[in-house]
Design a protein around this nucleic acid. Sequence first.
DNA 1: TTTCTTATTGCAAAATATTTGCAGTAAGCT
DNA 2: AGCTTACTGCAAATATTTTGCAATAAGAAA
Lengths: 153, 153
Amino acid sequence: MESIEHLLERVRERVPRLTKGKKAVVEILFAAEHSMTAQEIYSSWEERKHDQSELPHLQDIDLVTIYRNLEQLEKLGIVCKMEHSHGSWRYCLTGTHTERHHSHTISCVSCGKQLAIGACVLSEVDKIIAERTGFQNIHHVVQFTGACPECTV
Amino acid sequence: MESIEHLLERVRERVPRLTKGKKAVVEILFAAEHSMTAQEIYSSWEERKHDQSELPHLQDIDLVTIYRNLEQLEKLGIVCKMEHSHGSWRYCLTGTHTERHHSHTISCVSCGKQLAIGACVLSEVDKIIAERTGFQNIHHVVQFTGACPECTV
DNA sequence: TTTCTTATTGCAAAATATTTGCAGTAAGCT
DNA sequence: AGCTTACTGCAAATATTTTGCAATAAGAAA
Ligand SMILES: [Mn+2]
Ligand SMILES: [Mn+2]
Ligand SMILES: [Zn+2]
Ligand SMILES: [Zn+2]
């Protein structure tokens, strides 16, 4: 697995200025097990700041900055906007285990219950679309919905 | 193709009360070529009202009512929430050409350009998931994103 | 190091999309 | 016609994301 140092180096090469905000976003997503929302990344930074364990004192980062950095990193193909669940988007680092092994879910339109439906089978489709359209850094968002057994009368 | 009268009859059987709002939503989606947002359904009704062609005078329907009716009709499996594009959800009648032959798109994360990538190939997956999970009335939302040729330097 | 340019930031506010509370209305049953 | 309560309109809340703008700071140049 790529080291955080190497990853940040790659980011530094592609981005006009490597700022604390960009570093924070990348580091937090790097440490994450799953995809995160902008708000979750923000909260994660707040916690880390609150834990004081790191010196020198960590600066504040606005939620707006998180959004702007995620957008820029997405355009550079470093971050990908993956799933739109419960009203907000989720992000992760491209090319990572999190991206590749995301498992889609199905949610009940009635009670909201969520069920994982196993690992993604569309990564191959991403490649086919790349060939057909010429697009690069392709990702996808898939969400299944239906009525769960309890909600089906 | 099912007639609007028959469709409304089916809706009447499933719904506690068939109101003007529910009728409006169903009729508008029935006449639609493509999936629509709640706002588009609302605007469509406003236009139809403005055209005065229909007598007696058509009543106002609030956008909130459209949302509430769409939610109820979705839970009954009559309407399906299909795609989340440009910030809002799109709806259509289940079992229609619009649902079956929706074509997914890929959008450029940089310039926003959209490209259709052909008819959906996931309807079969819906069925497999139904068998595995016991869910019914399954639908899916798929959105591919990437960088289009012009935005790839 | 200091200076310079301008990408980036924080804060406030706007823009969207969707949901909720509530009092009044009306669909459909008796 | 009367009754019940599902449904509606309106206003307001919520939630998410975007935008404007003046202040700040990253990184190149001097
Ligand atoms: Mn997938
Ligand atoms: Mn599809
Ligand atoms: Zn359920
Ligand atoms: Zn593009």
